[in-house]
Design a protein around this nucleic acid. Structure first.
Lengths: 218, 218
DNA sequence: GTAATAACTTAGATTTGTCTAACAAAATAT
DNA sequence: ATATTTTGTTAGACAAATCTAAGTTATTAC
């Protein structure tokens, strides 16, 4: 079994490598709030355990084994978040920190129970996919709201880079997953959008916000 | 905040000191599966933090502060066990190990939610009292089944020294908390008892078993 | 294409929790 | 009441995860 610390490194590698497939020492160091030499020696350690490909002066990449282990930790994290929201009444902005801790529990029974109580969900409360029992996950083909056109009608499917503050912001706008949204206008000078949904006829969202909202076209 | 390890020492001190009020190095060492010198240095460390009274060659005692901290950890453990049984459908023999892990989470919000969902329970699934928010707890005035007399009618109130195996044994006998029991006979030579409950008219329980069952007289 | 800057690595120290080996005190047994 | 055994303590080593300081390689700028 891996230590709490090792698990956090794996998870960060998995998340940061989402697009490029590799992660620099600097990036990982900043993300974890750990100095570079520390990151470096941990990468060597994980390389010995065949979880990471390590070559001097090159970015880090997870091995297949490492990707699986990381996926399983993220699976536990997201199942937990779903349970906290759906079965314990927490808000989607409250669950990240708790799940950060619960994801490290070693109890297959516990997470199987959660999975079964939830009915084997495929996504977490923020719309991110829950990796399967092999640690594999795949994103649906969502688009960023920011890439939609005036007149489009879309459904809010996921929130990315979802900090607690951002989620609280969405709460104040009554924006939830599944919300149907119509795009009324686009300000060219700053990329902000005017949208309508529910009883709101002209809510304005900045480009920053629109880039963090993934939607499904109707 | 205290480390995971420190918390386990505090909890063991609390549990082992239940009767005598003090714990020897040997006892603590065996209970934790840790060598005596390790225990010794940890006691000195906890003494510096004013959690333990330490004097050379004397048994250890928790300070008031230590007792409170320990009580709060045990509170988290027992609330968790209750939640696992009542809200997640685990058996009372399955929850100890999971709660051992969850008790170390740092999230007041999480445990308050559990407490509220459960309706502020006073006992855990094994009948042990749940310490209050100041870490204080008190046992009801239960008696050991072994100290009851033939003819007594009692209600099963708590199971002490409840290992998973012992709880599974009770499951096979369909003995649960709250079960009303009549004492039919007592074998003098080995202290075993013959009891009746439910549809069972003559179940025999060894002295060892009877000493681990706490009952309430009717 | 060299100089300056940024990123990465190595070396060595520190903290935490553990161990073994050796020694000291207390308890027990005769 | 002394010898033996048990219990507790000290000293020193070690692994994990971290740091700082110093050195090395890559990248960027001009």
């Amino acid at each position: 079994m891996h230590s709490f610390t090792e698990e956090n490194y794996l998870k960060s590698l998995f998340n940061l490598a989402a697009d490029k497939g590799e992660v620099s020492a600097k990036e990982l160091s900043e993300h974890l709030g750990t100095k570079m030499p520390t990151v470096n020696s941990m990468m060597k350690k994980l390389a010995e355990k065949k979880l990471v490909h390590y070559e001097s002066y090159k970015p880090f990449r997870l091995t297949e084994k490492g990707r699986k282990e990381a996926g399983l930790i993220i699976r536990k994290h997201r199942l937990t978040e779903m349970f906290l929201v759906q079965k314990m009444g927490f808000g989607w902005e409250e669950v990240h920190e708790i799940a950060e801790q619960i994801e490290h529990l070693h109890s297959p029974l516990f997470f199987e129970k959660i999975d079964s109580i939830l009915g084997y969900p495929k996504i977490d409360p923020h719309g991110s996919p829950i990796p399967d029992k092999n640690g594999k996950m795949e994103w649906m083909q969502y688009e960023k709201l920011s890439s939609c056109k005036v007149g489009d009608i879309v459904k809010l499917a996921a929130v990315i880079h979802s900090t607690d503050d951002f989620l609280k912001f969405l709460n104040t706008r009554e924006l939830q997953l599944g919300q149907k949204i119509k795009i009324k206008g686009l300000e060219k000078f700053d990329g902000s959008m005017v949208i309508s949904y529910n009883k709101k006829t002209a809510e304005s969202l900045s480009l920053t916000v629109c880039e963090r909202l993934l939607v499904e076209k109707q």
